[in-house]
């Protein structure tokens, strides 16, 4: 088998196992898994920029929140059906990521991180400032009646799981295909050595811009899906914390691997879930995880497996 075939089989197997798990898992864990799959889409969007293109962003919460609020406001104040509202959420993210990408990519390295942080902070404050529509800190709930798509009620446990799985699989297979394409390989070239990629004739600025936009739109799609499937829109999702989470997930799972983001979300979600009987301060666990990962395992779980055991791992 070639590498591509092996990775295709692996991804298909992951999707099938996740589908089968629905019939095995108790309701509580199936609910968790639906949430994990949607957050994994967010992490995959982040991984595209951080893992493959080598740009560390500290502001992805603004993309997630743009998708989420684009959807939520369109449903609640625009009275649109859910399908159209999701498209509006994605369109909002597209606009935000094009503008942010255009401005922020004029900087590099540490300045890029801080600019992204500042933009995300501005986004968060704007949500608070227009509290009249967004209900500020409190957030708002999307009613069950407004969460139907193609005649399915997405607030129902089972349908929600399958919807999350479809979204997750589409993104996973799309990214697995994409990172093996010429475009994906060019992004990795930018990560490894931007000067050299430029010298070989690649327009590295354009590549980075496309990476920001793609990564932003994926994150926004995850945000809109999160709003649609779980019915709550809140400004917490726009805070710095939600910019740090995808970084943590991707670092934990393995940056620059297709399955790393999902593995990272899965582990972190259950780590926090299991530690909640020890302490309420779950960000303490997240902090320790971040610290230990950067110090001792910068490759993450999947990255480590690839480095030591299974060199073909995508």
């Amino acid at each position: 088998m070639t590498r591509e075939q092996k990775s295709l089989w692996l991804h298909a197997a992951v999707v099938l196992v996740l589908g089968a798990l629905y019939f095995v898992l108790p309701e509580y864990h199936a609910g968790n898994l639906a949430r994990i799959m949607v957050l994994a889409v967010y992490a995959m969007g982040y991984n595209l920029l951080f893992g493959y293109t080598g740009l560390l962003s500290l502001g992805h919460a603004m993309f997630f929140a743009a998708g989420m609020y684009g959807f939520g406001l369109a449903v609640n104040h625009g009275g649109l059906p859910a399908g159209a509202a999701v498209l509006i959420g994605i369109a909002a993210t597209l606009v935000v990521s094009v503008v942010v990408g255009f401005l922020a990519l004029r900087t590099r390295d540490v300045a890029f991180m801080i600019v992204m942080l500042m933009f995300a902070q501005t986004g968060y404050l704007i949500i608070l400032y227009f509290g009249e529509f967004t209900r500020g800190d409190e957030g708002f709930v999307v009613q069950q009646a407004q969460r139907g798509l193609f005649g399915f009620d997405l607030s129902a446990q089972g349908i929600r799981y399958w919807a999350a799985l479809i979204l997750f699989s589409a993104c996973l297979l799309g990214i697995a295909k994409g990172v093996n394409s010429r475009f994906g390989k060019a992004l990795v070239a930018v990560r490894e050595n931007e000067e050299r990629a430029r010298m070989l004739g690649y327009d590295t600025h354009r590549l980075k811009f496309l990476a920001v936009v793609l990564s932003g739109v994926l994150s926004g799609a995850a945000g809109a899906a999160y709003g649609l499937l779980f019915g709550y829109i809140g400004s917490t999702f726009a805070t710095v914390q939600y910019s740090i989470f995808p970084l943590l997930w991707v670092l934990l799972g393995g940056a620059g691997t297709t399955l790393g983001p999902f593995v990272g979300v899965l582990f972190m979600f259950y780590l926090i879930d299991l530690s909640s009987f020890l302490t309420d301060a779950y960000m303490f666990i997240a902090g320790i995880a971040l610290l230990l990962l950067t110090m001792f395992a910068p490759k993450g779980i999947v990255g480590q497996i690839r480095a030591s055991r299974v060199p073909w791992l995508p």
């Binding site: 560390l56 500290l58 540490v110 991180m113 740090i244 970084l247 670092l251 301060a281 960000m283 303490f284 997240a286 902090g287 320790i288 995880a289 971040l290 610290l291 230990l292 990962l293 950067t294 110090m295």
Partner: peptide, 13 residues
């Protein structure tokens, strides 16, 4: 930056 973010949450929590 990643390590000091970790430190941030450890001290704060």
């Amino acid at each position: 930056i990643v390590a000091t973010i970790g430190l941030l949450y450890i001290l704060q929590q």
